[in-house]
Design a protein around this nucleic acid. Structure first.
Length: 276
DNA sequence: CTTACCTCCTGCCCGC
DNA sequence: TGCGGGCAGGAGGTAA
């Protein structure tokens, strides 16, 4: 599941590999990938446009097309391949963009959960409907611990649910949510109302430290990219708790436990992470 | 307003 | 061997 660091790696890799191509043609093989506008309109509008810029917000990829903007969300398993047009397509390829240099940009998604949006360009991309309920990016400098405290201190919800809630802070998914809880030394079911202003400072600090570390690990993906592997932004990163059920904690050697929090599989160390 | 549950999809794992 | 059932999981939608 691509989270902020993986999406950052994907967008940088695409920029590095594609530069600024013109999209000559587009084929949509699974209609539900295109969220807006309808498929015919999406194809008609994207054809002939040039990608002139690449950026990211939370887990969303944004492609500047001049007077339009193409937005993608990879959800669980979405990835891009850049391949010669004559190379056969995998059965999970659902959208194909033909470029003018003989290559194709192919969107591949085993579970078909990903979404694409095409909007008339706005000066502030946050006005696009897909960002209506999306909060500030985790690295946004305007994001203040004070504001998080004011907004969350009276809520009944849990720390992990807050980390996963894209309307509060955009970019964190299930893997990094567990890693951030571990770094904070807090049980993922800790009520958010137990956190003080200072804890939110630490929450932002650890969130950014962990995401930044992951982006740096992903940096190697950009240079070592091969078209046969696709661009999904994944890389080898040493996790401390996520998916490590039954393994000894790297700090105290207690067995890592797995529970369900906010309907998500959640890993934590019962010794290092206490509820408040 | 807030929380709970359902939907989209497929691969994989399990039991028989 | 193969088949059916159950499950995971972002985010939007709907029901309560």
């Amino acid at each position: 599941m691509p989270e902020l660091p993986e999406v950052e790696t994907v967008i940088r890799t695409l920029e590095h590999q594609l530069h600024y191509p013109i999209i000559m043609d587009c084929k949509v093989l699974w209609n539900n990938i295109v969220a807006t506008p309808n498929v015919d309109e999406f194809i008609a509008q994207i054809k002939g446009r040039q990608i002139t810029g690449y950026r990211r917000h939370g887990k969303y990829l944004l492609f500047d097309l001049g007077d339009m903007e193409w937005v993608c969300h990879l959800r669980m398993e979405g990835k891009f391949y850049i391949q010669p047009a004559q190379e056969p397509c995998d059965k999970h390829t659902h959208v194909i963009f033909t470029l003018q240099d003989g290559r194709e940009l192919r969107y591949h998604d085993t579970r078909k959960f990903g979404k694409m949006y095409l909007y008339r360009k706005q000066e502030d991309y946050r006005q696009y409907p897909c960002f209506l309920h999306i909060g500030m990016d985790a690295f946004d400098e305007q994001l203040q611990a004070d504001d998080l405290y004011k907004r969350l201190h009276s809520k009944q919800t849990t720390l992990k649910a807050v980390l996963l809630d894209q309307s509060i802070l955009a970019g964190i998914g299930n893997i990094y949510a567990d890693e951030i809880c571990f770094a904070l030394g807090l049980h993922p079911e800790t009520k958010i109302s137990k956190l003080r202003k200072k804890d939110f400072e630490q929450l932002l600090y650890e969130t950014r430290r962990i995401l930044q570390g992951a982006i740096q690990s992903g940096g190697t993906t950009i240079r070592s990219y091969t078209s046969s592997l696709g661009v999904d932004g994944r890389f080898q990163l040493k996790l401390k708790v996520h998916a490590l059920k039954g393994e000894p904690c790297s700090v105290c050697h207690t067995e890592i436990k797995k529970i369900t929090v906010a309907t998500r599989g959640t890993y934590y160390c019962p010794t290092c992470q206490k509820k408040r």
